[in-house]
Amino acid sequence: MELLIAFVESVMRVSVPLLFAAYGGLISERSGLANVALEGQLLLSAFVAAATVALTQNAWVGLGAGIVAGGLGGAVFGWTSVKSRADHIVIGIAFNMLIAGLIPTVCRAWFGVTGGTPQLQRDARFTSDISFFLAAVLVGGILWWALQSTRWGLRLKAAGDRPEALTVQGVSAGWVRIQASTLCGLVVGIGGVNLSLCQGSGYIREMAGGRGFIALAAIIFGGWRPVQTGLACLLFAVADAVQTMLQGKSIFDLAIPNSIVQIIPYVATLLLLAFRRSMMSAPSAINKPV
């Protein structure tokens, strides 16, 4: 029983960055912007949050800075994708490369090392996993409601399915997408902050560990719908929690190599994605220029 409670707690904890990344990504994807840049946005906000706290010792300032950084990153990704009329995947990959190069460069200039920010004190971090989890659920609920009941949601879906329907009404679909991408970055930013200020004690290199991509898989698995996407995140979080539990364990006195344990979440994601039942389709105009 205790083990079960510990496991559920662990699932909730690891699901937080996934949930925020997936909900952010959902906003961007529904606007027609294919988003493989979630990974970079998670890293960016995680780093900026940790770096801010390292300089100010205030977790709340770090939270704000992380979210703003995520938003800025989203705006850059959205603007570049829309204006270049290029393949969003190419821009997304380039964005991830940019962040992967930018963070250690800045890190060295500010902290003298490229590996990450200094360790943060416990009282300069967030300790409540549960409030992050509840916030994520709340964001999901708001998103679910806003998609069907607001002007914003209506235009977002139009930009993703048939941007020309907006253009002929004199509404710029490109602008809708840039706004969506910015909002996406803000939401993903909370997930990034959770990584470096709650789950970790500062920023360490590549700390998102592919969660941005797993979140994207969750969106696809959830058929681009908020509730299902949230459930998919929890499912993937289970695989991650299993991985954490198995680390360093052995079966019948035979040590399980860590390399194999570590790939569990990725294999699980790949298999779940491959054998999903419903093949809900993507927004029709996804990754098409406007």
Partner: peptide, 18 residues
């Protein structure tokens, strides 16, 4: 046609001037 297939008739009609 510049209609959003996934939306309802009324949503399509008011899109842009909701």
């Amino acid at each position: 046609f510049t209609l959003v297939e996934s939306l309802s008739v009324i949503d399509n009609i008011m899109l842009g001037a909701e």
